[in-house]
Design a protein around this nucleic acid. Structure first.
Lengths: 255, 255
DNA sequence: CAGTCTGCTGAACGGTGTTCACCAGAGGTG
DNA sequence: CACCTCTGGTGAACACCGTTCAGCAGACTG
């Protein structure tokens, strides 16, 4: 980078004030796309908005990114950057799985509507595999039978994605009412369930206090807990039934 | 409806051949939208296509349907038309829950990309409540504690939606390869996992045979089974712990 | 028969993703 | 130092999209 004095204002030999020309890269485009996403939301995330954010013509984007779909895929991959899953500890597998789920949810919540993008992301890219490997390792060391261990990660990430997705939808739906808050939404729906005719919906109205109460986190934690308990039942089953045949031992920590 | 003889072909007193003018209704619009959806898929489902399907100007739709979002919501509600959830039978609650999930998945699979619409549908409309009531009743009679029973239905339908959604995404991704089949896709991915370097991904490659094997239905059934087992653990917990206090008994079948 | 009113038409507005001819400017070469 | 090439921008265009609106035709009402 050559050290150059600023152009004198009246020096017409220089073409423009300071073109400087930071080179365009996929990286910078994704940065700008995230800025647009956070400010405008998924529905208004357009190539034109991203280009405007960079002060660049729309068509310039297409030399670095082949389509909007590819841009979304690149944004999706950011999700996994710097995501360190702790080393498997069989004694704490339940906590580790729950923490994994919470980390996923937190990451999806870091940017508005990110879950909308994540839901269509391809979950098998090289960037994602390390986390998958760790998660699968946790499941195998916990004692899950292989067919279950292989799919448990899939189930869990589907759940995380779907939960964040629904959160995003609800947030969008109520965004116009300027002071959005989950407590207000949940109050509204609690009222709705309470007002249901008890003769036609005896259980729904009886459960009104529980249908939407608690924080979003509570709701999520319960869902994860249900899944973990379901997985645990397979562990117990394998432990009692499989005393005899020793399956191929799962590999501990990859080196 | 007046009985009228067909116009003589040379009778020029009649304005057009047979305008007939079937009146436009939300119902017919939704019909046409489903035709377009099945033929073109979600991405190409546009108001213009729907209007063309009906042989009508685009703007005509807007007198019956206030926006595309409303049209999608109406399409979503069709999901629940004629969906009869069997009366709760506590002895068979696991089977009943599994059947409910399968019925939901089957309905979502009846139309291409329907899950994409379902995922953003509001699940509290009056059309949906009867099924919810039945499902919640099943959960309460099964012995689930109220806070869990209240959210179990939510978890289950989220799971069904998300599963069908992902299926839809994958189908779209491989639609161009004209002879799409799940078995071919799963073979491709099985190969992918087998080719993973075993030193970096020991468990992922060890589980390659299980990662994507089996039918989509197997995959789904296992996920549902995991959730049901998780729910069952709450039933057992409540049965052993709650011998003393008798909670308000859940109402059996609404009349 | 006149009048109103409902429900459709066609055109338009402002947006979208994507493509393409063109061109400026940096880099290397003679 | 002049020239040439070639990378990576520009701006206009295409074919769509959801939505709105003035106008009009035909059926119903008085």
């Amino acid at each position: 980078m050559s050290e150059e004095l600023p152009a004198l204002p009246w020096d017409r030999s220089r073409r423009r004030a300071a073109p400087v020309r930071v080179p365009l890269t996929p990286e910078r485009i994704v940065d700008a796309a995230y800025v647009v996403l956070d400010r405008e939301g998924y529905d208004k995330l357009s190539m034109r908005q991203v280009a405007a954010e960079l002060g660049v013509a729309v068509s310039a984007l297409y030399t670095h990114v082949s389509s909007k779909d590819e841009l979304l895929e690149l944004m999706y991959l950011r999700l996994f950057r710097g995501w360190e899953v702790p080393d498997p500890d069989p004694a704490r597998w339940r906590e580790q799985v729950a923490e994994f789920a919470r980390e996923g949810l937190d990451r999806l919540r870091r940017h508005r509507d990110l879950a909308r993008i994540s839901m269509v992301g391809v979950p098998f890219s090289p960037e994602v595999l390390p986390q998958m490997e760790k998660l699968v390792t946790i499941f195998r060391l916990a004692g899950l039978p292989d067919p279950v261990a292989a799919r448990a990660g899939d189930l869990l990430s589907t759940l995380v994605d779907a939960f964040a997705f629904e959160e995003s939808i609800w947030q969008d739906r109520y965004r116009d009412s300027s002071d959005f808050s989950w407590t207000k939404v949940s109050e509204t729906f609690q009222q709705y369930f309470e007002d249901l005719p008890p003769d036609r919906f005896p259980n729904l109205s009886a459960l009104a206090p529980h249908m939407v109460s608690g924080s979003q986190n509570d709701r999520f934690d319960l869902a994860v807990e249900i899944v973990i308990r379901g997985l645990a039942s397979f562990v117990e089953e394998a432990a009692t039934a499989g005393e005899s045949g020793d399956r191929s031992a799962p590999a501990g920590e990859p080196r």
